[in-house]
């Protein structure tokens, strides 16, 4: 069995969790970070056992059934109306999704 990467043996720091939360677009406050970081460490320690289990000769499986590309006939089918598509939107304007500003001050 190959050695586990020594610096990543399942432990995740509070700072790393904070960084991942930014990547995942979730605001986590200090209390949440204190709560979640140790739990994530425990989970990662448990799944770390998987490292080195399968050798290079084992192909990865991304999907349980063998599949090829699936195509359909290029014909127009009914789809949602604009009203239906916007029916769950937090805010809509002129038949469009209304969103907060997408650029920062410096852009």
């Amino acid at each position: 069995m190959p050695d586990r990467p020594s610096d990543t043996a399942g432990v995740i720091t509070r700072d790393e969790v904070a960084h991942l939360a930014v990547l995942a677009r979730i605001d986590l406050d200090d209390a949440e970070l204190d709560h979640l970081a140790p739990q994530l460490s425990v989970i990662l320690e448990s799944v770390a056992s998987i490292q080195g289990v399968a050798g290079d000769d084992v192909p990865p499986t991304s999907h349980p059934m063998p599949l090829t590309n699936v195509f359909r006939e290029d014909v127009v089918e009914p789809s949602l109306t604009a009203e239906q598509a916007l029916s769950g939107a937090p805010e809509a304007e002129e038949q469009r999704f209304a969103v907060p500003r997408i650029l920062g001050d410096e852009q």
Binding site: R4, E16, L40, V47, I50, Q51, V58, P59, P60
Partner: peptide, 20 residues
């Protein structure tokens, strides 16, 4: 975390092989 570049092979890649 599992999909981030430094850990992808060690975690997600291995998990897909174990699936096989």
């Amino acid at each position: 975390y599992a999909l981030s570049s430094g850990y992808y092979d060690a975690y997600y890649g291995q998990a897909q092989k174990v699936r096989t």
